[in-house]
Structure formats: structure tokens, C-alpha cells
């Protein structure tokens, strides 16, 4: 699965929920007895909507949930899966934790770096790929593994990775 449209780096100062997700936002809030509990679901919706979390999106979440902006910022920065910088259309997250490491994750990551010409946390110039090392993806049985967007690829080696990249436009 590829990412939603990538917002330009110059994010707008003020964001509003698009009509399409308003119902989903309301539903997420309705799941909890107190509004503030919906901060993670709403950050997810925001990230899905805009591809990453520009400050204006965090402010929007704070406004929606009557939270303080710094509080939302603290939550968003706590979790590594929220992108606080724009990411490419395909977000390659390579697991570096024990099982995958033993199975050659390091080699795989170097291969990706070499092939794409970018390092950890960087995005290709054409905005196609962002490469990132991550901690355990909980697919230890299939290491080394990689998450692209929301999809998992397991039992990887260089050839398989090249084939995957080929398919991702």
C-alpha cells in the first residue's frame, strides 16, 4: 500500500479536517469516555490524511480534543511511527532488531542505502522513497523483514528487495 498524497514541505499554517474524514474523527472520539484519549487515533488519521504530521496537524488535533498543543507534540514525538518530517511516497522501514540482524538486516540496509543513494531518515530526490531503520516489527519468524507503508515483506535478500523496489513507483 502506498502512502496518501505527500504534503509539500511548506505546510499550511492552519489545517482543518477534510470532509471525508470528519465522520471518522467523530467516531474515534466517541470510543472513549474522555476526549483526550482519542489523541493517538486522531494523530493516525491526520498522518494518513496528510502523509506526515506538520505542526498545523498537531495543532488541529489539540484543538479538536481541547488539549494543549505541547501535550500533543509530546505524544507525537514519543512514538517513532509518527512522521514529523515529510516522507516519500514509499516509506521503507527495515527492522534492525535481534532476529533480523542475525539474518542479515545490516547487509540488507547497506544494500538499500547504496541502491537508493540515501541514508537513514532520508528521502530520495524524486520523493519516491524514504529509508529508515526501525526496531522490532514483530515478524521475527520472517527476518530480515521490511515494512513498506503498511505492508510487510519477509525473508528478504538483495534480489527480493530489488524486485520489490522495482514494483514501487
Amino acid at each position: 500500500m502506498s502512502h496518501a498524497p505527500v504534503m509539500p514541505v511548506e505546510a499550511p499554517a492552519v489545517l482543518e479536517w477534510p470532509e471525508a474524514v470528519k465522520a471518522e474523527v467523530a467516531e474515534a472520539i466517541s470510543h472513549y469516555p474522555v476526549k483526550r484519549s482519542a489523541v493517538l487515533p486522531l494523530l493516525w488519521i491526520a498522518q494518513r490524511t496528510w502523509g506526515w504530521l506538520p505542526p498545523a496537524a498537531m495543532q488541529l488535533v489539540a484543538r479538536t480534543l481541547e488539549l494543549n498543543e505541547p501535550e500533543v507534540f509530546g505524544v507525537a514525538t514519543f512514538y517513532t511511527m509518527f512522521n514529523l518530517q515529510p516522507v516519500g511516497r514509499h516509506h521503507l522501514q527495515v527492522c534492525m532488531t535481534l532476529s533480523c540482524s542475525l539474518m542479515g538486516a545490516d547487509r540488507l540496509f547497506k544494500h538499500l542505502e547504496h541502491k537508493l543513494g540515501i541514508g537513514h531518515g532520508e528521502t530520495t530526490a524524486d520523493g519516491r522513497f524514504t529509508l529508515r531503520r526501525v526496531e522490532c516489527l514483530a515478524a521475527c519468524g520472517g527476518g530480515p523483514c521490511m515494512q513498506v507503508g503498511l505492508d510487510y515483506y519477509e525473508d528478504l535478500d538483495e534480489t527480493k528487495v530489488d524486485a520489490i523496489l522495482e514494483k514501487l513507483k
Binding site: P55, Q59, N68, P70, F73, T77, F78
Partner: peptide
């Protein structure tokens, strides 16, 4: 005021303002 918050986590936790 809630102007301050803790960012990031673990050893990288840092106190700062919004963004």
C-alpha cells in the same frame, strides 16, 4: 500555561515547547 512538554523518549527525552 502548559507551555513545556517532554519530547521524544528514553535517553533522548528533551524538554521543549511545541515544535
Amino acid at each position: 500555561e502548559d507551555a513545556l512538554t517532554a519530547h521524544q523518549r528514553g535517553a533522548h527525552t528533551e524538554i521543549s515547547s511545541f515544535n
